[in-house]
Computed example of a mutant assay.
Amino acid sequence: MKQANLAVIMTCFNRRNTTLACLNALYQQKNHCDVYLTDDGSSDGTTEAVKAEYPEVKILQGNGNLFWVGGMHLAFGEAIKHQYDYYLWLNDDTFLEANAVSKLLQTHQSLAEQGYPESIVVGSTKDSITGKATYGGAVKSKKWYSNKFEFLEPSSAIQKCDAMYGNCVLIPKSVVAKVGNIDTAFVHSLGDLDYALRAGKLGCKVWVAPGYIGTCTKNSIRNSWADTNLNILERLKKVLHIKGFPLKSWTVFCSRHSGSFWIFYWFLPYVRAVVGYKDLATSPTFSEDISQTNSEV
């Protein structure tokens, strides 16, 4: 397999040491890559530290209001201009194991040989302490709630899935040619899920690579709209926040992906914020709570 021309897409905000640790693990990989990193207005010296330790990183500056989707859109868009063979989305709190990138590239090569060149390959992560699965691919629930996507536990084989958490995702240029960039109709959440669903509608496939590619701690629901320790008013404010289900973004997502009865599904997170959604506190998977999956940027 020839050396792939690879761009790594990242965004960060005010967690300098975490970002540096992520880059350190990335540069331990055997595969050469160009890194495009959006720093969305960090005040903790992230940009200066990255420039000092990794001067080859291409840093783009945000205004502090880009959040995850906006930051990734900016970096991804810049990389797309240079027409790489592959693009790797990587959250800055995801720490790759040795040969993780090679594993993802080999998985795509295997899929291409099987007749699926237009395939997104998702890397699964686990908690560094407990070893429990955290992020990766997701499959659409067979239950009645059409917006529910459940985490797909990785196995020793390549598995087909419907959607993905955007922590570590390999996208070949053939998919980018069809789907384009992350949609800025979203701000912090839902952009990764939307990308996978749009890709599927355009004939592309989404697959989970075998095993785990690294570690990433799952974001806590504490102090979020799903935290039943908060009062109803606080939960309502948080569910409407950028990191929850802001009205405009959630309307776009539901009308785009939830079928003729999308308005019914549109109401659910707001209703659950009022009545409480205890399932989210105990379940290892998050149904429509995709807002908790993306990096806190």
Rank of each mutant, 00 (worst) to 15 (best):
I221C: 06
Q159H: 02
E78G: 13
L6F: 07
Q292F: 08
G137L: 01
K178M: 01
H73C: 09
D289T: 10
N223F: 04
D183M: 10
V179F: 05
Y270W: 07
L247A: 13
P269F: 00
E153M: 12
L193I: 11
A163I: 00
F95N: 02
L240A: 05
E48D: 13
T215I: 06
L105H: 02
A75L: 04
Y195S: 05
T11W: 00
L268H: 14
T19S: 12
Y84L: 05
V176E: 00
L236G: 11
S174L: 06
Q109S: 15
S189T: 07
N91K: 12
L233M: 14
Q29L: 11
L26M: 08
S174Q: 14
W225P: 05
I9H: 04
V275A: 04
K238H: 13
K248S: 11
S255I: 00
E53W: 12
K248R: 14
Y277T: 07
C254P: 02
D44H: 11
H108L: 07
G166N: 14
N63Q: 04
G115K: 08
L202H: 04
S291Y: 10
N63V: 05
A98N: 10
G137T: 00
S156C: 00
L105Q: 02
T217Y: 09
L247Q: 14
D40W: 05
P117I: 04
A138Q: 03
D34K: 07
S287I: 07
N219D: 12
D227I: 07
H32W: 04
V271D: 05
P172N: 08
G64K: 05
D127L: 08
F261E: 05
M1A: 14
V139I: 14
Y135W: 05
A157I: 02
N65M: 08
S110I: 02
T215R: 05
A138Y: 06
H241P: 11
K81Y: 08
T251D: 10
D183H: 14
F13I: 06
A112D: 07
A49H: 10
V176P: 05
E153Y: 10
N65G: 07
V179Y: 06
I80K: 08
A185C: 15
S146D: 09
W266Y: 14
G137Y: 01
V69R: 01
F286Q: 14
V101D: 11
T293W: 02
D93A: 03
G180N: 12
G77N: 06
V69I: 10
G77H: 06
E153H: 15
I129R: 03
R15E: 11
S128E: 10
R15Y: 09
L20I: 04
D39H: 09
N14W: 01
L66C: 08
Y87T: 05
I120G: 02
T125W: 03
Q83D: 13
P154K: 01
Q292S: 13
L20E: 01
L268Q: 15
F67Y: 06
G115H: 15
